[in-house]
Amino acid sequence: MVFGFLSSGNNKKGKERKKLHDSSGNNGKRSSNDIILKDINIFYSGKQAIKDVDMTIPEKKVTAFIGPSGCGKSTLLRNINRMNDEIVGCTYDGEILWQGTDILEKKVDPVALRRRIGMVFQKPNPFPKTIFDNIAYGPKLLGIRNKKKLKEIVEKSLRDAALWNEVKDRLNDSAMGLSGGQQQRLCIARALAVEPDVILMDEPCSALDPIATAKIEDLINELKKEYTVVIVTHNMQQASRISDFTGFMYLGELIEFGKTRQIFENPKEDLTERYITGRFG
């Protein structure tokens, strides 16, 4: 049999491509919780970093972006929760439809959006505060002052991030004293604490050893049952292990997007194949 959804990055005919992409998501089942990117272009001070990206990121699945350094993975990811608004000179057009709204519209408040679309970064970046305060930071911003409630949130978030058992006896120690892997799980817990629906991860394991990486991967596997996860990774094996869908990007374009198994077993684009087999350049 042949896989039903193919993308063709080289195919410049927008309409046809869009149709192909649209069917990619949940095997054709579409949900308003899917994140639908339409004709996304992103510029850094006029220099184009992302070109005409169209894709559907399905709900409650792990979607991975792969591609050579500088191809725009982080840029695209950061647009999904409007982190690019914080970069001076960064402009974008196109639409990102999510739950019935175009979240790139001016009237959408990025502050409110980011609570619902959380983000985890490449380098574990806990605040230089205690473990407790790190997790409670978000809920406190949202106006939760009740100590007992905060404690419950901290415990649940840490449990969900599979960190509770390791830190429950030292919640009041500095988060900087944790190991790299623990710090990263803390960052995930911190993101979970504000009850988001989508979690974006930009190379979350690139600074971690294999064991810590495995734990995060297990965690992501668990998370996807309840959250939509979008992850950028340079580790091809990781992408193939944990993601359900994979997009290959090159020079700001989405070259190929499809089920992970298909991308890694039988990529349609020569460029993709050359990249994943390490014959690039």
Binding site: M83, V111, A112, R114, G118, P126, F127, Y137
Partner: peptide
């Protein structure tokens, strides 16, 4: 103060001012 510290806060849905006061200044 490293940029990633600010981003961590902003990405959680903190406003810029909250980020300045609660994260950047303490750091």
């Amino acid at each position: 103060v490293p940029r990633h510290m600010r981003e961590a806060s902003l990405a959680m849905g903190a406003t810029k001012w909250e980020t300045s006061i609660k994260v950047v200044i303490p750091a």
